[in-house]
Design a protein around this nucleic acid. Structure first.
Length: 600
DNA sequence: CTAGGGTTAG
């Protein structure tokens, strides 16, 4: 503090002030509740008339994300008559934005008498990075309306906002514009552009942008790797990663976590033997990383979690803490899921409580969903229901759906009715819920209710999305609808399928018609189930692929319980590996078992 | 003074 006094007494020139400034920003990093720091702030409010010092403090405040000094600078800048100074205002906007106070930034922006290109850019970037994407786009529109020129900075920020909103049409317009004025050549613009495309699922466009970029930074490479991984193109992700290594690019946290994600995803697609090899490979890379941050740990933990390697999840979760990391919300999702998979109710309870008491977190709805699922699967249906009723959020459709599923397994019709009612309220457009509800009434002989629900269903004219599966054979995709008629070899497929069903029936397969939710006779239900698209795709795969090749099927809906049992028995009876990717996960059937362990 | 990338269930 002696330094401070001497500065106040005017004993320092501006270069000494700079040294002091660095000290000050170090203080800013620490908690500002000690008397010394308070003294600094008081001094700042009253004495900082040195403009360059003011600016430097603003910069350090922006860097450290600590608004305390920045706010004092704001007050001071007004005192010394800097409120109409564009440079100072720009720095204020930047500082507030970096501290997450975008409303304060906006206020400064709105009150500026003259706005420069940097002011607009900073404001748009601030809104985009603080979750106000729509507002960022509006400001951009206003910027154009007021006939301001914009720059690469503007475009990359606007694209960033587009990425969060998956705003493809805006992105395409900007892309066209960027090509016209040669802005695509800018690394930032190009990277932001490919990121929007890959987040919107247009991975081909993303890779086109990537390949045509004249210059790529490490961010460009890892964006592209991440893009492939997020779009399920795990192999491409790993190939690109290899390419990045070849040109001598160093791995960083971003590429590694995408790599782990890609390994975990790819492993699910490949035969059992290689599953562990891939996850093992990812784990080796992970262990080789010098400083592992939270996201990296999470990526590794959830990589194991996705493979139902629950034990590894729990071990890694503990190791993470031993390494001095605080488990994040995401890590807790993985560990709770692991408990649910293994039926470890007590451990689940323990972790859930630990999260609240030890780590001061408030569980979000996903954590609650894990708990509901865990209780339900273990037959603690009342406890599951209790949790749903007493949690601090509205229950989601998936929670009621999970409760309903456990009610059906454990035969609790009363709660099933409650769950189904809630489900059809939350998702009034989902015909499946109404059909479920009516089936429950039917099972309880509540015929009046059945009639009422049926009427409701007819009135709403809701339609379920039709089931569709597809299988790739020799570079050609063959797709099958439920009860497919158009495929050129359909007659042969049906007759082969009949033979297969007969064979499996001898091995103990029994059609589970409760999984068919149509209003039809039982015999018709058998027929509908038999013609589910994944069964058709499987039959066609058996006809076309070599006898030892695994069969990979993709499906647009969730696999039904009957097909799931069917695939399990088929895998042991035919000695084939069958992999079904439905909307949520991979089911890897082998020797009569499924990798999901009845969890989906 | 201003811009781009990674993890999460059902």
């Amino acid at each position: 503090m002696r330094t401070l006094r001497r500065y106040k007494e005017g004993l320092f020139n501006s270069s000494t002030a700079q040294i002091y400034c660095r000290k000050f920003s170090a203080i800013g990093n620490a908690k500002a509740d000690r008397p010394r720091d308070q003294e600094c702030l008081v001094w700042l409010r009253t004495s900082a008339t040195h403009i360059s010092l003011l600016h430097q403090i603003l910069q350090s405040s922006a860097r450290t994300g600590a608004p305390m000094e920045g706010k004092a600078c704001h007050a001071q800048s007004i005192c010394v008559g800097l409120q109409s100074d564009t440079l100072t205002s720009n720095m204020l906007i930047n500082m507030y934005s970096k501290c997450g106070l975008h409303n304060c930034a906006r206020k400064v922006f709105d009150e500026m008498p003259e706005r420069s290109l940097v002011s607009w850019n900073t404001m748009i970037g601030s809104l985009a990075r603080n979750g106000e994407e729509q507002e960022a786009l509006s400001v951009f529109v206003r910027m154009q309306r007021e006939e301001n020129q914009f720059s690469e900075f503007t475009v990359s920020s606007v694209l960033f906002a587009c990425a969060a909103k998956c705003a493809v049409s805006e992105c395409k317009q900007l892309h066209a514009f960027a090509i016209k004025v040669a802005m695509v050549l800018n690394v930032y613009v190009g990277t932001a552009l490919l990121d929007v495309y890959s987040k919107a699922g247009l991975i081909k466009d993303a890779s086109f942008v990537f390949e045509s970029m004249p210059e790529r930074s490490d961010v460009t490479w890892s964006s592209m790797v991440a893009g492939y991984a997020q779009n399920g193109l795990y192999e491409e992700a790993l190939v690109l990663l290899h390419r990045a290594q070849m040109i001598g690019l160093e791995h960083n946290q971003f590429t590694i976590s995408s790599a782990i994600c890609a390994c975990a995803g790819l492993a699910a697609l490949i035969e059992g033997k290689q599953v562990h090899a891939f996850i093992g490979e990812a784990y080796t890379v992970f262990q080789g990383m010098e400083d592992r941050n939270t996201i990296l740990w999470n990526a590794m933990i959830s990589g194991f979690s996705r493979h139902a390697c629950s034990l590894e999840v729990m071990i890694l979760f503990e190791k993470m803490q031993q390494a001095g990391m605080l488990p994040s919300e995401v890590a807790y999702i993985s560990v709770l899921t692991a408990c649910s998979h293994m039926g470890l109710v007590e451990s689940g309870r323990k972790y859930f409580n630990l999260m609240i008491t030890e780590h001061n977190m408030s569980p979000n709805f996903v954590h609650y969903a894990c708990m509901v699922d865990m209780f339900g699967r273990s037959g603690l249906i009342l406890e599951a229901h209790n949790l749903i009723e007493n949690m601090p959020f509205d229950a989601t459709a998936s929670m009621w759906g999970s409760l309903l599923a456990s009610c059906r397994i454990h035969g609790n019709f009363h709660l099933a009715e409650i769950a189904a009612k809630h489900l059809s309220e939350i998702e009034p457009n989902n015909a499946g819920n109404l059909i479920l509800l009516s089936n429950i009434y039917a099972a309880n002989n509540k015929w009046e209710e059945v009639a009422r629900t049926r009427k409701l269903l007819k009135e709403s004219e809701l339609k379920k999305e039709r089931g569709k599966s597809w299988i790739e054979i020799k570079d050609k995709v063959h797709s099958f609808m439920v009860g497919e008629r158009k495929h050129p070899r359909i007659a042969e497929i049906y007759s082969k399928l009949d033979q297969l069903v007969e064979k499996l029936r001898m091995m103990g397969y029994k059609a589970e018609i409760e999984h068919d939710l149509h209003y039809v006779e039982e015999s018709r239900k058998h027929e509908l189930l038999r013609h589910h698209s994944e069964k058709l795709a499987l039959t066609f795969g058996l006809m076309c692929l070599p006898s030892n090749a695994p069969i990979r099927i993709m499906k647009n809906l969730r696999i039904c319980g009957d097909c799931h049992s069917f695939m399990k028995i088929a895998s042991s009876c035919l000695g084939r590996e069958i992999i079904v990717r439905d909307t949520k996960r991979f089911h890897h059937f082998k020797n009569g078992f499924c990798s999901c362990q009845e969890f989906w």
